[in-house]
């Protein structure tokens, strides 16, 4: 029983990381109805930037801030330079552009920073936490981080006029434009925010699995599964989905499929969600009357 509790708690911790990346995917999906397959690779690159900053002598927390800011800016640049002209393209063209970014950024990470595994320290320190039994400080920190991100996101979307403009952009870009909302700029901003949230996920993953160019690929499909389970266009659904999937992964990994099948488990979850729950848990079912 104790083991179940422990696995559940650490599942929530790892699920929080999936939730982070899933939120990043959903933010972009909501505004553009496209899935950014390069989200994980962009995040990985930002984690390398953090490690590079640490190497320059910055304290870890400051390096993390630098990495997140870097992600924010580079996310906006990528949107402006590459993604911009594919917003209204077909899903196929868009995903191909994302795959190009995916392998491009992946090889860039390897080329600049090398392909070897690199140890990456946790911002929350090593060792166990004094607050929650069974969990390490890093795991507690991951959970707190996703709660903070969710809170900030809620404040931004529901209580600022920029957040409202972003929701308007996601809902009906033409009407938003006609109301004076600078839709193009908000799409750029959305990519920046998503990239920043994704970078946080990478900073949380790196201490667990070591940093290498392919670090986020596995996390990305868990984030896909989480986003799908949550309904693809709901950030809150993505968080719930991420945590659920973290718990499922941990319990199933220990008792059902074994740890060598984790990617296959993600595949199974994705197919199961598509089959049984295509709307997801919190997906939008807008009631429309005409």
């Amino acid at each position: 029983m104790q083991q179940v509790i422990q696995l559940t708690l650490s599942g929530i911790a790892i699920g929080s990381i999936y939730a982070c990346l899933a939120v990043a995917l959903v933010l972009i999906y909501k505004t553009t109805h496209h899935v950014n397959f390069a989200q994980g690779e962009m995040a990985t690159f930002s984690a390398y930037v953090a490690l590079f900053a640490v190497g320059l002598g910055l304290p870890l927390w400051l390096a993390a801030v630098v990495a997140v800011l870097f992600a924010f800016v580079s996310g906006m640049v990528i949107e402006r330079v590459v993604i911009r002209r594919f917003h209204s393209a077909s899903a196929t063209t868009f995903v191909v552009a994302c795959i190009a970014l995916f392998i491009g950024i992946n090889s860039l990470s390897g080329w600049i920073f090398g392909h070897d595994l690199k140890a990456f320290p946790s911002i929350f320190g090593a060792g166990t936490s004094s607050v929650v039994p069974f969990l390490s400080a890093h795991e507690v920190g991951s959970i707190v981080t996703v709660v903070v991100i969710a809170g900030l996101l809620y404040l931004f979307l529901s209580h600022t006029s920029l957040g409202l403009a972003m929701r308007a952009t996601a809902d009906n870009p033409v009407s938003a434009r006609l109301s004076g909302v600078p839709v193009d700029w908000l799409l750029t901003l959305g990519w920046g925010i998503a990239a920043a949230v994704g970078a946080v996920a990478a900073l949380l993953v790196a201490p667990i699995v070591f940093l290498d160019p392919n670090m986020m690929i596995g996390v990305l499909i868990y984030a896909f599964a989480a986003a799908l389970l949550g309904g693809l266009d709901s950030p809150w659904g993505a968080i719930v989905g991420g945590i659920l999937i973290g718990v499922i992964e941990n319990l199933a990994g220990a008792y059902v499929v074994g740890n060598d099948m984790k990617l296959s488990l993600a595949l199974l979850i994705i197919v199961a969600v598509l089959m049984l729950l295509p709307q997801g848990l919190l997906g939008r079912k807008t009631a429309t009357r005409v």
């Binding site: 308007a168 809902d171 938003a176 006609l178 109301s179 004076g180 807008t286 429309t288």
Partner: peptide, 26 residues
Amino acid sequence: IAHVPDGRGTLAGLSVEDNLLVGGYL
């Protein structure tokens, strides 16, 4: 210049008040 497009063009997923607030974005 305010333009009410054909087919209404409300922001269907937002509340009535949020719709008006979007109108007041400027």
